[in-house]
Every structure is written in C-alpha cells, then in structure tokens.
Design a binder for these strands. Sequence first.
DNA 1: TTGAAAGCGCTAACAT
DNA 2: ATGTTAGCGCTTTCAA
Lengths: 350, 350
Amino acid sequence: MTGIDDVAKLAGVSTATVSRALSGRGHVAPRTREKVAAAASQLGYVVNADASSLATGRTRNVGVVVPFLNRWFYTAVIEGAQRRLMQYGYDLTLYNLSGHDDERSSVFEHFLLRKRVDAVLAVSLELTEQEVDSLHALGRPLVGVGGPIPGVPTLSIDDVAVTKLATEHLLSLGHRVIGHIGGDVERELSFHLPTNRRHGYELALREAGIEPDPALYYPAVFTMESGYQAAKQLLGEPRIRPTALVAASDEMAIGAMLAARDMGLSVPGDLSVIGIDNHELAPFFGLSTVDQHPGLQGERAVELLMEALQPSGGADSVPAVDQPLPFDLIVRDSTARVPLQPAAVESAHG
Amino acid sequence: MTGIDDVAKLAGVSTATVSRALSGRGHVAPRTREKVAAAASQLGYVVNADASSLATGRTRNVGVVVPFLNRWFYTAVIEGAQRRLMQYGYDLTLYNLSGHDDERSSVFEHFLLRKRVDAVLAVSLELTEQEVDSLHALGRPLVGVGGPIPGVPTLSIDDVAVTKLATEHLLSLGHRVIGHIGGDVERELSFHLPTNRRHGYELALREAGIEPDPALYYPAVFTMESGYQAAKQLLGEPRIRPTALVAASDEMAIGAMLAARDMGLSVPGDLSVIGIDNHELAPFFGLSTVDQHPGLQGERAVELLMEALQPSGGADSVPAVDQPLPFDLIVRDSTARVPLQPAAVESAHG
DNA sequence: TTGAAAGCGCTAACAT
DNA sequence: ATGTTAGCGCTTTCAA
C-alpha cells in the first residue's frame, strides 16, 4: 500500500512536509502544498489511521454505546451522531450492550480500554456505578444522550415539559378525563424518564385545576404491544371514562390506537391519543405527537464532544449543557375535540 | 496510562514476554504467564490497539457498511455481526450510507481507506461499479449480506424459496386466488430481491397448476404504508377477488392487514396475509411469516470473514458460500383456510 | 519554509 | 523459554 514515503518521493519533499501539507498543521508554502496534494491524489494516498493515532495520541474515532439497536430512538440518535462525526472526519465504533452479562462487562473491561476512541457517547444507558467509573477512567470526553448518567453531562429533552405539552394539547381540545400510559419504573432501564414524563402529565392537569386520578395511569414498557395492553385496561375499566390518552412514547400510543379500534372505539371520534417521539410510523398512523428530534440530539452530542477534544477547550471536561433541546408538537389525526358524550366501550357497542 | 513496559517491569520480564504471554502467541512458561497476567490485571493494563495494529498490520476491527440504519433488517444483521465480532475480540466500525451523495462517496474515498478495518461487511447494498471497485481495492476480505454485490461472496436466504414456501402455505390452506405485494423494481435499492421473491410466488402457483395473474401483483416499497396502499388497491379492485396475500416483507404485510381491516375485511376470516422476515412486530400483529434470521446472517458473515483472516485460510479470498441459509415458516393468526365464499369488500359490507 | 530524526507502544524476528 | 532489537507509518520537535 502506498505510504507517506511514496508521496514524499513523488513530490520531491520530506515526509515531514507531506504530513504538514496534508494535515494543514504547520506552515507549508502554497506551491509545495499543491505539489504534495497532487502527488497524494495521484497515488491515491490516504493516511494510515493507526500510525497517525499512535503518533498523535488521537484516534479520530468515537465510541457509541447503546443498550439495544432495535429501537427506533437509538438508531435515530446514531444516525445523527454518525452524520456529524463524518463531517469532522471521525469514525464511529459501535458498542452494543444487549446480550449476555459477560458481553456487557467485556465492553467496559476490555473493548473500551483499548484506546481506540477519543471520546464516548452513551445513549440512554442505565449503568451501574462500576460501569460509570470505568467510563470515567478512560479519561476521555464523555456525554450521554437521552438518559441521565450520574456525573456525566447528558443531552436530553425536558421530559416533564414534553408530556406537559402533549397533555395541554388535549386539555385545549376540551378533554378533562385524560389517561396516561407511562413507562413502568419497575421494568424499565431508566428510572427518570418515565417518572418525569408522568410528572409532566400531572403538572398539566393540576395547572388546569384537575387532580390526577391514579386510576387513569397505567404502566407499560415502551413497546406497541405493551401500549396496546395498557390501553385495553384503561379503556375497559368502567369506573373511569377517559376521552383521551397520552402515551409516553409513540410506539405505546400506536398500540393504544389499535386497542381502541379493537374495542370498537374510533380515534379520534371517541378517543384522542397522543404520543411522544415522532416515530417513523407516526405519520402512517396519523398519530399526533411531540417530536423530540433524536437525530439532532446525536448531532449535538457530537458537537459537545468535538469541543471537548479541542486543545483550546477544557482538557477532558465537556462543556455544561445549557441550551434546552427543542421539541415540537405535531398535530395529526389522532387528536380532536372531546366528544359530547364521554366515550366508553358500552356506548360504542350500542 | 500504563503501558507494556510497566507490566514488564512489575512482572520482572521483558516486553516481548509480556506481549507473548498476553496474546497467547509463542511459548511462555506457565509460571511466567501467570506472573504477567497478575501484573497486567494489577495495573489494569489493556493493550493499545493502535500500537498493536501498527506492529501487526491487523486492526481487530471490521467495517460494517449499511445503506440505512432505521430498517429492522439492518439493525438485526448488525446486532448479530456485533455479537460474533465481540467473541472474536473485534470492534465494529459502522459506516452509514444514507445522507448526501458526497457523504456517501466520502465513505469509499476516505473513511474506508484509512486502514482502520481488517475486513468489510456490506449489508444489502446496491453499489455502483466504482464503489465495488474501491471496496475490492482495499484488498481486504469482503462479504455481503442480504443483497448480491457483483463479484462479492454474499450471504442471503434463497429469496425464491422463501416466497415459494409462503405461497405454498396459503395454497395448502385452500387458497387459489392469491395476491402478491412485492418490491417495486423501479423504486427499490435492490433489483434482485423483489424479482426473486416474485418468482417464488409465481413458481408455487404454477406448480399448483395456477397461472399467475399479473393483476394480482402490486408493487410497493418495503414499508408499512406502502403495503397498506398496495393492499387497498388489490382488495378494492372488483375484478379480482384475492382470498390471500403474500407480501415480500412483514412491514408490507402488516400494512396490508391494517388496510384489510379498514376496508371491513377480517383477517384471517375474509383474507389471509403472510409476510417475510419475522419482524419484531410480527408476533404482536399475529402475522404468519417466514423467519429469515437476520441476526444469524450477520453472525455467519462474520464467521466467513474471520476464516478469511486466518493465515491458514486463503489470503484475501473468502470461502465460497455453500450452506444455504435457514428460513422457517412461522404460522400465527393471519392465515387460515380459505373462506367458503371468496371475500370482497362488498360481501363484508353487506 | 523545510528536513532530519526521535519517538508513539507494540510485535516478531533473531539470538541466546 | 526469554531477551534484544529493529521496525510498523506517521507526527513533531529541533535545526537549518
């Protein structure tokens, strides 16, 4: 394979000059720079990343750690991160924590320690204290996206504000009996997210002078199926008569829409449903939702890491996250004014 | 950071011995090996991947190239590949080709050339000739998964056999008028896959003595929405009366199920639907399907690459793919015996 | 502005 | 079985 020596020879300069010319560091005469560039492209020369890393101590590679891959949110974040990293000339090495426990620990005890990465991006991870420690022990810039990691600057939408907005949308349509399908604190990876989203829902109700009824909350995991089941429970319970549902995610919300239909309730005729995410399936199902722009979160996270990697920036300290992340209400077909008669399965059936 | 010298010093041996002891290459006395291992773990030493790569020429890293990330099949393949790679002690660097054209070309012209990877796994890629060339120019083992790449050994299920099986399932239930929602050759990335799947469908029909009716085929892209629309067309057309539908993917099939329901047809009462994939949503929708085990495909692909990377194996030649990949019919609730009266929208409505 | 040369941390001959 | 040593390909002082 062609190396820096070949380029140097062809351009008639030293390897040092080639390095300087191609990297843009140090002063090189314009004419020399051109000669080098020409030689390099003629030979199809591309710097050997490993040799460069060894010499500089910088790998131009960041590690992205995710708990799963098969969830829309994660891939969306990864795509955003990837896009930005590429612009900076960085590679993305993926570490997936699903799988056996020993695979998981092997990521922390082995893979991440090989000095392959300049920085680490942790997506929605619920980590043990020990794992957080080993992340810190890398001595590399580290940011989280989507889930708070103790002692790690984390990028996240305001989960309280997001469900508050969704709930307010329903309130503004006249709904007063609004159910909530939220993450199950017992069963979810993350404790904070479902709790915050529930708080946002309750906050909106209280501000509207409505005391939240615990019976109107039903826990679920963040899947369509779980949302479906939760909705069946909520809609089948004769003592409560929700005219609207706010789900903590779009997948749950879609499950809820399907459940309503299976029970003979029309959406939004008898029941309004809103989710959180703007999942790729949301347009197809006509689901009203709050977009949380996960791709953007990935991009922002990368920008923070890149800042921290600048020699100008504080050594290994990621700048504090100040800007709140944007989220936007998207109204589609699943939410409408409250029906005159509160909906219930009975009324739909006759 | 602690290096090999520190370990050597602590263990009272030379760096060469440390290297040998830790890598398992070359002969080391058991007692020495233990001493070294103890010293290494005491110091928390992990080999610097870049230095090792530079010295050996092997990176212990493979590049995985995907056209998108947000499709279930890709992430499933990646997960499988990742799992296996980890067992071999390899990292996975992800290259995503969605995004602008210049980002795409930058992957081939820059990123992949940095000698970061020992091998490349290309997932369901429709590549230009030039792109295939630059992949070959890497001089690294290369395998494809899911989509044939000219001149590249590719792992794929037998697409003809898969839809043939799905169609035969419907035939065995007594269906005779079977529609097909297949990939649109004009609009899809890959030419072969939709064509082969259609062939399998037609083959099954012909073997059952039924001449395929072109009117029973409707093209779509591999999404739920597109499957929904295609099903509406197929089911709304009064001149054909399909009692069953085979879709080229589960997402299309789910779309078709939803379309049928929206038209007042019950599945499987009035219409049977079968897909291909065993998508994560298939169980929830009760969809009968043919599992193509994408995770397994990813694992297999990695095994091929690892074989090719063995010095014993042919230099950069990936062994020919001989074993056919497994696929399995999974019968759920969306397929049943043909109704006595052919279903149509009219019959359902009155 | 450019070149010479000393590493970066590890591995793999080659010696012993 | 272990140590010595010369690189791997590049970057970056230090000199010129």
